[in-house]
Design a protein around this nucleic acid. Structure first.
Lengths: 209, 209
DNA sequence: GATTTCAGCAAACAGTTGTTTACTCAACCC
DNA sequence: GGGTTGAGTAAACAACTGTTTGCTGAAATC
């Protein structure tokens, strides 16, 4: 249902990409709620009217960006959990997890910035799309946590609450890394590791109801 | 240096207040970076040019809002720590702390929304003002934590890292409460208490370097 | 090869934006 | 009470906004 021959659709996809990239670029220095469509089309090298061939709205484009940004996050977390057996020491695993986040921020700056910035931003549809995706994300983390030996005998609410703590901490750490230079990055990742270790200690001594 | 006779200055302060309140009102449905000054003056019932008698810029107004919003937060946390001796049970203290946050959100919705929304928002001066204020805030919390018996023998970095964890958690909880109805509020506060308890357990069993 | 489809364009629309200018008139000072 | 200060105004400025209209020309279909 999505392709006719190829060349036509491919060109359209390319223009669409240009619009999304232009938006991401502009969002480095402003919030989504102040983004203009003329601004976006200008940055993408397209005439204003052309925008409507791809999106109904700017909000429409915003929701697409949310899905795009969190898709790459899902891939990351999947890979991170898959590798977790390789690390026997818990501290090693924490260090690895933080490094995975730092690498992800490096590789997807614009996406991470967008999520962090608009999570509580001024545009309802975007905010809600992020909330919905982060919830699915938290479910995923909760499922993985439940399989760990530490979680034996835990209530689902307790597992879920830890998952929320981890996800929030991850987003916050990623956001902090966005504007950090190499030196600040060391401080931030060191603190993040310490905090994760504290939570880990808490989990080991937790008494679930 | 700030008053001449009274009536004159008082009227000016009142207009200034009207501008700040108008901005806060408008910021319920948009981000600061999309706020217009004509929009603000219109909402405040003032002519556009009048704005410049009070602020050089919209950013100038934004920074004022930051200071205003975090001043009330400082008052809150001061009161909360002052009352902490009244609660012998740790769980009771946690429940009280969460309730203080919920009450604060109820009483200062617009301010809390502004801080949560613009903490990672698109306007540099505002973002940096919030970061600076939250850092002072974290210092305050760290000082209070250091006095608690649990922190005996802890390094200053470890105390500071816990303080950051608490502050971030507080802001996040407050932000979550913003859009919650009565029922969701119960869920959010319950989760927040659980999470604080987990951190508390972690602190009790922590081995500082 | 003729016909249909449709991504992208140029132009025009009425509104809105931030800022400056010259002004009014009440509160202040002496 | 006369002169000064300064908070707030109305009008004008060029620049920009989102959206619609009819058009062009290349790719796709038959």
């Amino acid at each position: 249902m999505s392709q006719t021959t190829g060349a036509r659709q491919a060109q359209k996809q390319q223009s669409r990409r240009a619009l999304l990239d232009a938006a991401l670029q502009l969002l480095e220095h402003q919030s989504f709620s102040s983004l203009g469509m003329r601004e976006v089309t200008r940055e993408a090298g397209m005439s204003p009217a052309g925008f409507y061939r791809h999106f109904r709205d700017l909000n429409d484009l915003g929701v697409c960006l949310v899905e795009e940004a969190l898709a790459s996050l899902h891939l990351m977390i999947g890979a991170a959990f898959a590798e977790q057996e390789e690390h026997s020491e818990p501290d090693e695993l924490i260090a690895h997890a933080v490094q995975v986040i730092a690498d992800h921020v490096q590789a997807h700056r614009a996406h991470v910035r967008f999520i962090a910035r608009e999570r509580f931003g001024g545009v309802r549809p975007v905010r809600e799309a992020i909330a919905a995706e982060l919830e699915r994300f938290t479910d995923e983390v909760a499922r993985a946590l439940a399989l760990q030996p530490v979680s034996a005998g835990w209530s689902t609410e307790d597992v879920r609450m830890v998952a929320e703590l981890y996800v929030d901490h991850m987003v916050l750490t990623a956001a902090a890394l966005l504007e950090a230079d190499a030196q600040e990055e060391q401080r931030i990742t060191a603190t993040a590791r310490r905090q994760l270790r504290l939570i880990s200690v808490g989990r080991r001594h937790w008494i679930s109801d």
